[in-house]
Design a protein around this nucleic acid. Structure first.
Lengths: 150, 150
DNA sequence: TTTTAATAGACAGAAAGTCTGTCCATTTAC
DNA sequence: GTAAATGGACAGACTTTCTGTCTATTAAAA
């Protein structure tokens, strides 16, 4: 009687988005490991995605990554101990510090972007460049429509 | 000199996929909480996504969700203690057990699907039904092209 | 200008969710 | 009928997140 799980949990929009997202995630972090950055983990992307060239404060990073400042502070400490970032005092605010990428941090950042591009090119090969362009366009429209922040 | 973070980590395909994915995730679990299921957490979706009406074994769930059987066993134990699933012996295999949704589990499952559909409809309103259909079509093609499993 | 608010971060502790490693019971294969 | 494979249980660890509290400093208000 109870044939409940069948309108297919695999056909939701969320499921469709998850598949390529996890593919990219796996390939990117695998690629980083293969290129000499085996200690960079997915959690670190919360910092790497939002850090600015001139350095960023912990609160700002936390807010953009949508996690608590304590969680971001943990990631900063972790990446600091791994040699990817340094923390320097903020010249404009005695309370604050700035998180800055070391040269190794810049290297990992550049590799991240390069891998992302390569992976996207691979996907474009699979579905065609026209569809990839359309996919990007629609996702961008959707992001915009969802608002800059919830 | 070092203007490294600027080819824009926010413009990658991964970033574009993440935005709507996290939106859906937030809204779905918020919606579940609002509808009387505040104890269902995102991690539980690894089980809820793959459980079958006739019940599923832990190893099967783990394999489909791409986590270890120990991790899946943890989720099973958790959902069992919350009253969403029960574990019954597998009639065909003395070693095995079957994880089965309780009626409350079926209720949360149905609510999950309903929320997903409502959210997708909302997105379709934002970008138009034509674009939503195209988005689905392309994501489905991409999933297919990426292969059934890595 | 002093007092009060808000802000940036540090520290402590806890919890969720994942992993590895080991073990037993049962089933399948030779 | 023994050996290998399989489903699951148990123990322990680690990562990543959270809440709560605290200090130092800055900004706002009196």
């Amino acid at each position: 009687m109870s044939n409940v799980p069948l309108p297919d949990a695999q056909a939701t929009l969320g499921a469709l988005l998850r598949r390529p997202y996890e593919y990219l995630q796996t390939k990117v972090y695998g690629g980083l490991a293969a290129r000499g950055f085996p200690d960079i983990r997915p959690a670190h992307s919360s910092l790497l995605r939002y850090i600015r060239p001139e350095g960023s404060r912990v609160v700002d990073l936390a807010e953009r990554a949508q996690i608590t400042k304590q969680s971001m502070a943990y990631l900063v400490g972790d990446l600091e101990s791994l040699g990817y970032v340094t923390v320097v005092p903020d010249p404009d605010d005695g309370r604050a510090k700035r998180v800055v990428l070391t040269s190794r941090g810049q290297a990992v950042w550049a590799t991240l972007i390069e891998l992302s591009q390569t992976l996207e090119d691979h996907c474009a090969d699979l579905i065609g460049t026209a569809d990839m362009a359309t996919l990007r366009r629609i996702l961008q429209d959707l992001s915009q429509a969802l608002g800059p922040r919830d």
